[in-house]
Design a protein around this nucleic acid. Structure first.
Length: 250
DNA sequence: AACTTCGTCAACCGCGAGACC
DNA sequence: AGGTCTCGCGGTTGACGAAGT
Protein backbone atom coordinates (compact mmCIF):
# COMPACT_ATOMS: atom_id res chain seq x y z
CA UNK A 1 0.00 0.00 0.00
CA UNK A 2 1.78 1.90 0.30
CA UNK A 3 3.39 4.75 -1.18
CA UNK A 4 2.15 6.94 1.57
CA UNK A 5 3.06 4.75 4.48
CA UNK A 6 6.56 4.04 3.31
CA UNK A 7 7.31 7.70 3.01
CA UNK A 8 5.82 8.52 6.41
CA UNK A 9 6.96 5.51 8.30
CA UNK A 10 8.83 6.37 11.43
CA UNK A 11 10.29 3.70 13.62
CA UNK A 12 11.10 4.41 17.22
CA UNK A 13 11.86 1.51 19.50
CA UNK A 14 10.41 -0.77 16.83
CA UNK A 15 7.04 0.98 16.74
CA UNK A 16 5.65 2.52 13.62
CA UNK A 17 4.37 6.07 13.91
CA UNK A 18 2.48 8.48 11.73
CA UNK A 19 -0.73 8.05 9.76
CA UNK A 20 -2.42 4.68 9.79
CA UNK A 21 -2.78 2.66 6.62
CA UNK A 22 -5.94 0.83 5.53
CA UNK A 23 -4.22 -2.48 6.24
CA UNK A 24 -3.35 -1.44 9.77
CA UNK A 25 -6.90 -0.30 10.33
CA UNK A 26 -8.20 -3.65 9.13
CA UNK A 27 -5.83 -5.59 11.38
CA UNK A 28 -6.81 -3.53 14.40
CA UNK A 29 -10.52 -3.79 13.65
CA UNK A 30 -10.28 -7.56 13.30
CA UNK A 31 -8.38 -7.74 16.56
CA UNK A 32 -11.06 -5.81 18.43
CA UNK A 33 -13.82 -7.86 16.84
CA UNK A 34 -12.16 -11.05 18.04
CA UNK A 35 -10.65 -10.01 21.36
CA UNK A 36 -12.75 -7.03 22.36
CA UNK A 37 -11.47 -3.66 23.52
CA UNK A 38 -8.62 -3.60 25.99
CA UNK A 39 -5.26 -5.35 26.29
CA UNK A 40 -3.95 -2.94 23.73
CA UNK A 41 -0.38 -3.96 24.29
CA UNK A 42 -1.14 -7.44 23.02
CA UNK A 43 -2.39 -6.12 19.66
CA UNK A 44 1.14 -6.07 18.30
CA UNK A 45 1.89 -9.61 19.49
CA UNK A 46 -1.32 -11.07 18.12
CA UNK A 47 -1.73 -9.17 14.86
CA UNK A 48 1.86 -8.40 14.01
CA UNK A 49 0.96 -4.75 13.83
CA UNK A 50 3.99 -2.61 14.57
CA UNK A 51 2.06 -0.10 16.61
CA UNK A 52 2.24 0.60 20.33
CA UNK A 53 -0.74 -0.29 22.47
CA UNK A 54 -1.25 3.36 23.12
CA UNK A 55 -1.39 4.15 19.43
CA UNK A 56 -3.80 1.26 18.81
CA UNK A 57 -6.15 2.39 21.52
CA UNK A 58 -6.14 5.93 20.24
CA UNK A 59 -6.80 4.85 16.67
CA UNK A 60 -9.69 2.65 17.74
CA UNK A 61 -11.27 5.16 20.10
CA UNK A 62 -10.95 8.18 17.84
CA UNK A 63 -11.42 6.70 14.41
CA UNK A 64 -12.35 3.04 14.03
CA UNK A 65 -15.09 2.56 16.63
CA UNK A 66 -18.27 1.65 14.76
CA UNK A 67 -20.50 3.86 16.88
CA UNK A 68 -18.68 7.04 15.95
CA UNK A 69 -20.74 9.82 14.48
CA UNK A 70 -19.18 11.34 11.40
CA UNK A 71 -19.66 14.83 10.16
CA UNK A 72 -19.76 18.30 11.54
CA UNK A 73 -20.75 19.16 15.08
CA UNK A 74 -24.40 20.22 15.00
CA UNK A 75 -25.64 23.45 16.61
CA UNK A 76 -27.33 21.37 19.31
CA UNK A 77 -24.11 19.57 20.05
CA UNK A 78 -22.30 22.88 20.09
CA UNK A 79 -24.72 24.17 22.71
CA UNK A 80 -24.14 21.12 24.86
CA UNK A 81 -20.39 21.48 24.49
CA UNK A 82 -20.53 25.12 25.55
CA UNK A 83 -22.73 24.45 28.53
CA UNK A 84 -20.78 21.45 29.71
CA UNK A 85 -17.49 23.23 29.23
CA UNK A 86 -18.82 26.08 31.35
CA UNK A 87 -19.51 23.55 34.09
CA UNK A 88 -16.69 21.07 33.73
CA UNK A 89 -13.87 22.98 32.14
CA UNK A 90 -11.46 21.06 29.92
CA UNK A 91 -12.71 17.67 30.96
CA UNK A 92 -13.14 16.54 27.39
CA UNK A 93 -13.78 12.90 28.10
CA UNK A 94 -16.59 13.78 30.49
CA UNK A 95 -18.08 16.11 27.90
CA UNK A 96 -17.71 13.45 25.22
CA UNK A 97 -19.64 10.97 27.33
CA UNK A 98 -22.64 13.25 27.06
CA UNK A 99 -22.37 13.38 23.27
CA UNK A 100 -22.81 9.87 21.92
CA UNK A 101 -20.67 9.19 18.88
CA UNK A 102 -18.29 12.06 19.55
CA UNK A 103 -14.79 11.62 20.91
CA UNK A 104 -12.93 13.68 23.44
CA UNK A 105 -10.35 14.46 20.78
CA UNK A 106 -13.00 15.73 18.40
CA UNK A 107 -14.60 17.94 21.02
CA UNK A 108 -11.25 19.22 22.18
CA UNK A 109 -10.29 20.12 18.62
CA UNK A 110 -13.66 21.74 18.02
CA UNK A 111 -13.40 23.83 21.15
CA UNK A 112 -9.89 24.97 20.41
CA UNK A 113 -10.64 25.97 16.84
CA UNK A 114 -14.01 27.56 17.47
CA UNK A 115 -13.93 29.07 20.92
CA UNK A 116 -10.50 29.19 22.46
CA UNK A 117 -9.41 32.44 20.91
CA UNK A 118 -12.85 33.71 20.16
CA UNK A 119 -12.99 36.08 23.03
CA UNK A 120 -16.03 38.23 22.38
CA UNK A 121 -15.62 41.92 21.71
CA UNK A 122 -16.23 44.40 24.51
CA UNK A 123 -19.58 45.26 22.97
CA UNK A 124 -20.56 41.60 22.62
CA UNK A 125 -19.50 40.94 26.20
CA UNK A 126 -21.61 43.82 27.43
CA UNK A 127 -24.61 42.48 25.51
CA UNK A 128 -24.12 38.98 26.86
CA UNK A 129 -23.80 40.25 30.40
CA UNK A 130 -26.84 42.46 30.04
CA UNK A 131 -28.86 39.54 28.68
CA UNK A 132 -27.66 37.36 31.50
CA UNK A 133 -28.52 39.96 34.13
CA UNK A 134 -32.04 40.33 32.77
CA UNK A 135 -32.49 36.58 32.91
CA UNK A 136 -31.17 36.54 36.45
CA UNK A 137 -33.57 39.27 37.51
CA UNK A 138 -36.48 37.48 35.93
CA UNK A 139 -35.57 34.23 37.65
CA UNK A 140 -35.13 36.03 40.91
CA UNK A 141 -38.57 37.61 40.61
CA UNK A 142 -40.11 34.22 39.86
CA UNK A 143 -38.35 32.79 42.84
CA UNK A 144 -39.58 35.57 45.12
CA UNK A 145 -43.13 35.19 43.82
CA UNK A 146 -43.06 31.47 44.48
CA UNK A 147 -41.66 32.10 47.93
CA UNK A 148 -44.27 34.71 48.68
CA UNK A 149 -47.09 32.43 47.57
CA UNK A 150 -45.78 29.62 49.70
CA UNK A 151 -45.55 31.91 52.70
CA UNK A 152 -49.08 33.16 52.16
CA UNK A 153 -50.37 29.64 51.86
CA UNK A 154 -48.46 28.65 54.94
CA UNK A 155 -49.90 31.56 56.93
CA UNK A 156 -53.34 30.79 55.61
CA UNK A 157 -52.99 27.18 56.74
CA UNK A 158 -51.56 28.24 60.05
CA UNK A 159 -54.30 30.77 60.73
CA UNK A 160 -56.91 28.24 59.79
CA UNK A 161 -55.45 25.72 62.20
CA UNK A 162 -55.19 28.30 64.95
CA UNK A 163 -58.71 29.53 64.45
CA UNK A 164 -59.99 25.98 64.58
CA UNK A 165 -57.68 25.20 67.50
CA UNK A 166 -56.48 22.15 65.68
CA UNK A 167 -53.00 20.71 65.92
CA UNK A 168 -51.16 20.47 62.63
CA UNK A 169 -50.20 16.88 62.07
CA UNK A 170 -46.89 16.38 60.34
CA UNK A 171 -48.39 14.31 57.57
CA UNK A 172 -50.84 17.01 56.77
CA UNK A 173 -48.09 19.57 56.70
CA UNK A 174 -46.46 17.72 53.88
CA UNK A 175 -49.53 17.36 51.76
CA UNK A 176 -49.61 19.96 49.06
CA UNK A 177 -51.72 20.50 46.03
CA UNK A 178 -50.05 19.59 42.72
CA UNK A 179 -49.68 23.31 42.07
CA UNK A 180 -47.94 23.84 45.37
CA UNK A 181 -45.68 20.89 44.75
CA UNK A 182 -44.70 22.29 41.38
CA UNK A 183 -43.87 25.62 42.93
CA UNK A 184 -41.91 24.00 45.70
CA UNK A 185 -40.03 21.79 43.26
CA UNK A 186 -39.22 24.79 41.11
CA UNK A 187 -38.02 26.68 44.11
CA UNK A 188 -35.90 23.80 45.36
CA UNK A 189 -34.36 23.36 41.94
CA UNK A 190 -33.60 27.04 41.84
CA UNK A 191 -32.06 26.99 45.28
CA UNK A 192 -30.05 23.90 44.48
CA UNK A 193 -28.74 25.51 41.35
CA UNK A 194 -27.82 28.61 43.29
CA UNK A 195 -26.09 26.54 45.93
CA UNK A 196 -24.14 24.43 43.48
CA UNK A 197 -20.43 25.02 43.80
CA UNK A 198 -17.66 24.43 41.34
CA UNK A 199 -16.71 21.28 43.19
CA UNK A 200 -20.24 20.05 42.75
CA UNK A 201 -19.94 20.74 39.07
CA UNK A 202 -16.70 18.84 38.89
CA UNK A 203 -18.40 15.81 40.32
CA UNK A 204 -20.85 15.74 37.40
CA UNK A 205 -19.03 13.35 35.16
CA UNK A 206 -22.16 12.77 33.18
CA UNK A 207 -24.82 13.66 32.28
CA UNK A 208 -25.93 16.98 33.50
CA UNK A 209 -28.96 18.03 31.56
CA UNK A 210 -27.84 19.80 28.41
CA UNK A 211 -30.26 22.64 28.99
CA UNK A 212 -29.53 24.39 32.21
CA UNK A 213 -30.48 27.44 34.08
CA UNK A 214 -28.08 30.32 33.64
CA UNK A 215 -28.02 30.66 37.38
CA UNK A 216 -26.05 27.45 37.55
CA UNK A 217 -23.27 29.00 35.54
CA UNK A 218 -22.25 30.92 38.60
CA UNK A 219 -21.39 34.18 37.00
CA UNK A 220 -21.75 37.20 39.21
CA UNK A 221 -25.09 38.91 38.91
CA UNK A 222 -23.76 42.41 38.81
CA UNK A 223 -20.45 43.03 37.16
CA UNK A 224 -18.98 46.45 36.88
CA UNK A 225 -16.63 47.41 34.12
CA UNK A 226 -13.49 46.60 36.03
CA UNK A 227 -14.75 43.24 37.26
CA UNK A 228 -16.07 42.46 33.83
CA UNK A 229 -12.63 42.73 32.31
CA UNK A 230 -11.00 40.96 35.20
CA UNK A 231 -13.55 38.17 34.96
CA UNK A 232 -13.00 37.59 31.27
CA UNK A 233 -9.25 37.89 31.62
CA UNK A 234 -9.11 35.34 34.37
CA UNK A 235 -11.44 33.06 32.47
CA UNK A 236 -9.26 33.21 29.40
CA UNK A 237 -6.13 32.78 31.44
CA UNK A 238 -7.70 29.66 32.86
CA UNK A 239 -8.50 28.39 29.41
CA UNK A 240 -5.10 29.38 28.11
CA UNK A 241 -3.39 27.92 31.11
CA UNK A 242 -1.04 30.89 31.11
CA UNK A 243 -0.26 32.84 34.25
CA UNK A 244 1.39 35.87 32.72
CA UNK A 245 -0.52 38.97 33.66
CA UNK A 246 0.51 41.14 30.75
CA UNK A 247 -0.16 38.72 27.95
CA UNK A 248 -1.58 40.46 24.93
CA UNK A 249 -5.17 40.45 23.86
CA UNK A 250 -6.30 37.77 21.48
C1' DA B 1 0.14 31.57 -10.47
C1' DA B 2 2.78 31.66 -6.35
C1' DC B 3 3.03 32.42 -1.77
C1' DT B 4 1.21 32.99 2.92
C1' DT B 5 -2.06 32.41 6.47
C1' DC B 6 -5.67 29.99 8.62
C1' DG B 7 -8.64 26.10 9.97
C1' DT B 8 -9.16 21.36 10.71
C1' DC B 9 -8.07 17.02 12.38
C1' DA B 10 -5.27 12.84 13.20
C1' DA B 11 -1.74 11.44 15.94
C1' DC B 12 1.82 11.80 19.50
C1' DC B 13 3.58 12.93 24.19
C1' DG B 14 3.75 13.23 29.11
C1' DC B 15 1.56 12.47 33.19
C1' DG B 16 -1.32 10.42 36.74
C1' DA B 17 -4.34 6.79 38.57
C1' DG B 18 -5.35 2.22 39.36
C1' DA B 19 -4.33 -2.71 38.98
C1' DC B 20 -1.27 -6.24 39.62
C1' DC B 21 2.71 -8.70 41.31
C1' DA C 1 4.96 -1.36 50.88
C1' DG C 2 6.72 -0.39 46.64
C1' DG C 3 7.87 -1.27 41.88
C1' DT C 4 6.02 -2.09 37.26
C1' DC C 5 2.53 -2.22 33.86
C1' DT C 6 -1.54 -0.67 31.58
C1' DC C 7 -4.85 2.50 30.52
C1' DG C 8 -7.03 6.91 30.00
C1' DC C 9 -6.79 11.82 29.87
C1' DG C 10 -5.51 16.51 28.48
C1' DG C 11 -2.18 19.18 25.99
C1' DT C 12 0.39 19.77 21.92
C1' DT C 13 2.21 19.10 17.29
C1' DG C 14 2.32 18.65 12.45
C1' DA C 15 0.30 17.61 7.94
C1' DC C 16 -2.74 19.15 4.66
C1' DG C 17 -6.24 21.59 2.18
C1' DA C 18 -8.83 25.99 1.71
C1' DA C 19 -8.95 30.77 1.62
C1' DG C 20 -6.81 35.07 1.16
C1' DT C 21 -3.30 38.30 -0.76
Amino acid sequence: MDAMSSSLEVLQGGWRKGPWTALEDRLLTEYVQQQGEGSWNSVAKITGLRRSGKSCRLRWVNYLRPDLKRGKITPDEETVILQLHAMLGNRWSAIARCLPGRTDNEIKNYWRTHFKKARPSRRARAQLLHQYQLQQQQEHRQYLNALQMLQQQHHHHHNLMESQQLPMPQQQQQQHSPQEEDQQAAMEAHMNAMAMTNDDMQSYDCCYPPVMSPSALELPVVVDDYDDDALWDSLWRLVDGSSGGDSGEC
